[in-house]
C-alpha cells in the first residue's frame, strides 16, 4: 500500500530490529509497510549502510519513509544511507528522534490512517514528550 508512509527500523541487533517489526505488524497490522535491518556487515552488533538502503528501498514510496534508529552509529549510518540513495527515493525519508520500539508502533499507527510523513514523525517523537 503505497498511500501510507513506510516505516524502517534500524537497530544494532538483528533480533531487536525483527522484534520491533513483529510488534508493529501484530499491533498495527499489515497495511503499513515495515522493513527492518540490524547487524554490521559481518553479522555482529552494528549497522550496515547497504542493508539500511535495502530496507528503505523495500518501503520506498511517494508518501515518504520514517526511519527509527537505536544508538549513535545507527543514526549516522542511516543518514549516510539516505544521502547516498537520494536519486532513487520517491518521497522524503526522515529519521525520527524517538525510542525505536515505541516510536515504530506510534509511527505505524499514525501512518495506517494515511497521515503525512510530518504527522507520522511528530507522533513518533511525541511519545517521550
Amino acid at each position: 500500500m503505497t498511500d501510507c508512509v513506510g516505516i524502517v527500523i534500524v537497530s544494532h541487533s538483528p533480533d531487536v530490529a525483527k522484534g520491533a517489526a513483529d510488534m508493529v505488524r501484530q499491533m498495527v497490522g499489515e497495511e503499513v509497510r515495515v522493513a527492518y535491518c540490524g547487524g554490521d556487515p559481518s553479522g555482529g552488533l552494528g549497522t550496515d549502510v547497504a542493508a539500511i538502503q535495502a530496507a528503505i528501498r523495500a518501503v520506498n514510496g511517494p508518501k515518504g519513509v520514517a526511519v527509527l534508529v537505536d544508538l549513535g552509529g545507527a543514526e549516522t549510518n542511516s543518514e549516510m544511507a539516505i544521502e547516498l540513495m537520494a536519486d532513487e527515493l520517491l518521497g522524503e525519508v526522515v529519521l525520527c528522534d524517538a525510542p525505536i520500539v515505541e516510536g515504530a508502533v506510534m509511527a505505524a499507527t499514525e501512518a495506517s490512517g494515511g497521515a503525512s510523513l510530518a504527522a507520522v514523525r511528530a507522533t513518533a517523537e511525541e511519545f517521550l514528550s
Binding site: D40, P41, S42, G46, D48, V49, G72, T76, N77, L84
Partner: peptide, 15 residues
C-alpha cells in the same frame, strides 16, 4: 569504509 565498517566511524571516515 561507508559500506563495510558497520559503526559510526564508517560514515565519518568514509565522508
Amino acid at each position: 569504509l561507508v559500506m563495510k565498517v558497520g559503526g559510526a566511524s564508517g560514515p565519518l571516515y568514509g565522508s
